[in-house]
Each structure stands twice: as C-alpha cells, then as structure tokens.
Simulated assay, not measured.
Amino acid sequence: MTAQPNGTRHHETSRLRGLMLVAGREIRVRGLAKSNIVSLIVTVLIVGVLAALPTILGGGDEGAEKIGLAGTNATAMESQLNAMGGFDITMYDTVGEAEKAVEDGTVDTAVADGKLYSEENPDQGLQTRLDSAWQAAAVQTNLHEAGLSDAEIAAALTPRSLETITLAEGATDSVTSYFTGLVISIIMFMMLMTPVQYIAMGVVEEKSSRIVEILLTSLKPWQLLGGKVIGLGVISLVNLVAMVAVGLGVSAATGVLSDLPPGTASAALSTIGWWLIALVLFGTLAGGVGSLVSRQEESGSVLTPLIMSLTLSYIGAIFTLNAPTSTFAQVLSIVPPFSAITMPTRMAITTVPTWEIVTAIGLLVLAAAGALALGSQLYKRSVLYTGSRLKLTEALRRAA
C-alpha cells in the first residue's frame, strides 16, 4: 500500500529535478556570461546616479560665498546667514580688517556697519540676500536693545510658514518622487525586456541546432520551457534586487529617502513582486512564440507584439509620471499588461487607492495564468517543428 505513494513522490522529485537542471544550466550559461555582468554593473551605476540626481541638482555647500563680518550687528547677521545657508563666514574685530580681507581676496564680500565691501559689483542675488540678512540682523539688535529676551526675539523673527494644501488627492510635484518613479519604470522595462529576448532567442537557438530533439528524449517540453523561464528569472531577479538595493541605499546615503513621500520605499520593494508576475506573463509567451520559428533572423517578427506591448507599457508609465491622477493613468495602471510597469511607477509618486492596487494585481495574475497556458501549449506543439514560420492558429491546431 505504501509503494504507490513512494513511487509518486519519486516521480514528482524526478520531474522537479529535470526542471531545476534546465534552470541551473541557464543560470550558468547566461548569468555568468561577461555581457550580463558588464550590463549589471553599468545598469547599477545608472540607477545610483539617477537616485542621487535630486541631490546633485539641488547642489550643496560647494562654492559657498566667502563673507566677512564686522561691526555692531556682526553676531546677529552671522546667525541670519547661517540660517540661510551657502555662506562661509569669517568674523573680524574691526571694519578695517574686514575691508582688507576683501582687498586681499581672503573673502569675496564683507559687511560691516551697514556697508557692503566688494572688489567688483556683487551679484544681484547675493546682494539681495545680504541686504535681507542685514535688515533682519538690525531688527534683532533693535529688539534686544528694547529689552526683549532671546526667546521673544526668536519668536518675533520666526513667523509661521505657509501651510501647503494640495487639492488633488495624492498629487505631488516632488522632484525626488518623480525621479523615484522614473527609476522604477526604467528598471521594470529593462528587467523585462532582457529576459524576454533571451528566452525567445534560446528557444530558437535550441531548435535550429536540433539540441532540443536530444533534450526532449529525457525531459518534458514544460520542463524545458519552465526551466528556461526560471533560470533567466533568477538571473534577472538578482539584477533587480541589486538595482533596488543600490537605489534605496544611495537615496538613504544622500538623505533623499527621508524626503520621499510616505510609502515610496515599500513601493520600490513591491516592484519585485510586480516584476515576478510580469515575467511569467511575458516570459512564457516569449518561449511560446519563439518556438514558432526555426531561425534567429525570424525571431524578431514573432517577438514584435511582445516588444511593442512592453514599450507601450513603459511609455504609459512615463505619462503617469506627469499625470498620475488622470483617468488615463488610472486605467493604464489597472489593465494588463500595461499595469505591470505603470502601477508600481504610479505607486511611487502618488497615493493609489487600495481597490485599484488589488484589482490590478488580480487582473495581472489572471493574465499571467492565461499567458502561461497559451505559451506552454505553443511551445509543446511547435518546438519540434522545423521549416518555415508557423502561424499562431496553425500551431494551436497541431497535435500535442
């Protein structure tokens, strides 16, 4: 009575072993290839630069104006300039020392007792900032002389900032969130395009070399296709995790991560889940349509619909960056296969209602299941066929 379950278990183990053998072969051949390693390094560098771009564009303390201060309001003005930022301040005991520092080139500009010293006419923007700081410092000094405490002076000189209220729900014009969405859309597009092409090219290569006929003597068609998708999926997953880790790491190191809208980090991590579902959808279809042809030069024609749908998904995600709350963006982020790239991009830049996310996931999973059934049938019925390109309808009518 126990022999049958053991035999069934052995059969299941054997089928799984065949699947993993094919997957392992793909990982060794494709994953360790020089082209993949170089591509990963270049892409990770691009992601790192994009993640740091808001900080780069925002500038820093480099090129700070060298300012000399002296006179009665020097201390008060120093606090004003420090609050503004972007100044390298030097304090002098006398007005003469400050003026001489300008002549010697030690500082670019000096302010002392209501006078601004400069070798040449100062930049208008700089002069405006210095004048504003001087006026605030003079008010601070006058308030102090009037008997107000430091706390009262600080309260008087620190008016409440304007509160920003965004009327469009979830809308944002944050530069950092825009670049986060841009990085996610680029990563998704690249990490789907590459394995899709490799899967189709691998199927055609095995057909044209007749290796597939030898492999099918010991393996089932579903093991060959499944192992190929899993192997290339593992390679791409490693690449994707590396990119997400670098993107979040650079954002955290540059201080951008804390400035991002709430949920941005989780949206970036959820990209991996969206990618896995999309890989099943596009990957199995790529293997199926790849089996329709027998020569590499013909693979482009059968891959065109998949490449076009991926490209349109990416274009839709770029549109979403500029209008995340529009009706078109909402529809595009729910309907598969476009939702695979558009929804995670949209989630990174705006607040998406839970029902839209759940609906998008459900529809994408259903689409992936349908693609898995179609792709596996195409592969099973066409992989041993050699000759001119098979039409889709002809392949489905062939005996399995």
Results as ranks from 00 to 15, higher is better:
Ile184Arg: 02
Ala110Asn: 07
Gly370His: 10
Ala51Ser: 15
Arg346Phe: 06
Asp61Glu: 14
Val234Gln: 00
Leu225Lys: 01
Lys220Trp: 02
His10Asn: 03
Thr393Phe: 03
Val250Ser: 08
Thr106Trp: 04
Ser339Trp: 04
Leu366Met: 14
Leu16Met: 11
Arg129Thr: 10
Gly147His: 07
Val49Leu: 15
Ala137Gly: 02
Gly370Cys: 07
Ile27Val: 13
Pro324Asn: 12
Thr180Asn: 03
Ile307Asp: 11
Trp134Phe: 12
Gly233Ser: 03
Arg160Asn: 10
Asp173Val: 14
Glu99Val: 15
Val256Ile: 15
Thr386Met: 07
Val246Arg: 09
Gly202Pro: 01
Pro221Cys: 07
Met201Trp: 06
Leu332Trp: 08
Met343His: 11
Ile341Lys: 01
Ala317Met: 06
Thr264Asn: 08
Ser388Trp: 00
Pro54Glu: 09
Thr217Trp: 01
Asp131Lys: 10
Pro337Met: 13
Glu394Trp: 03
Tyr385Asp: 03
Arg346Trp: 05
Val335Ser: 03
Thr43Asp: 06
Ala3Pro: 10
Val22Gly: 03
Gly202Tyr: 01
Val383Phe: 02
Asp113Arg: 04
Ala317Arg: 06
Leu219Thr: 07
Ser209Gly: 08
Phe319Pro: 09
Asn36Gln: 14
Thr8Asp: 14
Asn322Tyr: 08
Leu332Cys: 05
Asn121Lys: 12
His144Trp: 05
Arg25Asn: 11
Leu162Gly: 10
Trp274Tyr: 08
Ala373Trp: 15
Gly31Lys: 00
Leu148Met: 15
Ile341Met: 06
Ala64Gly: 14
Leu143Asn: 07
Ala367Leu: 04
Val22Tyr: 05
Glu298Thr: 13
Ser309Gly: 06
Tyr117Phe: 15
Ala168Met: 10
Gln197Trp: 02
Ile361Pro: 01
Pro324His: 11
Ile27Arg: 00
Val29Leu: 03
Val95Gly: 13
Ala171Tyr: 13
Ala137Trp: 04
Val302Trp: 03
Glu213Pro: 05
Ala400Ile: 09
Asn121His: 10
Lys207Ile: 10
Ala253Asn: 01
Thr327Cys: 02
Thr8Pro: 08
Ser208Val: 06
Leu32Ser: 09
Ala101Leu: 10
Thr194Leu: 02
Thr354Tyr: 11
Leu240Lys: 04
Gly85Ser: 14
Ala399His: 13
Val335Leu: 08
Thr325Asp: 07
Leu45Ala: 15
Ser333Gln: 07
Ala360Val: 08
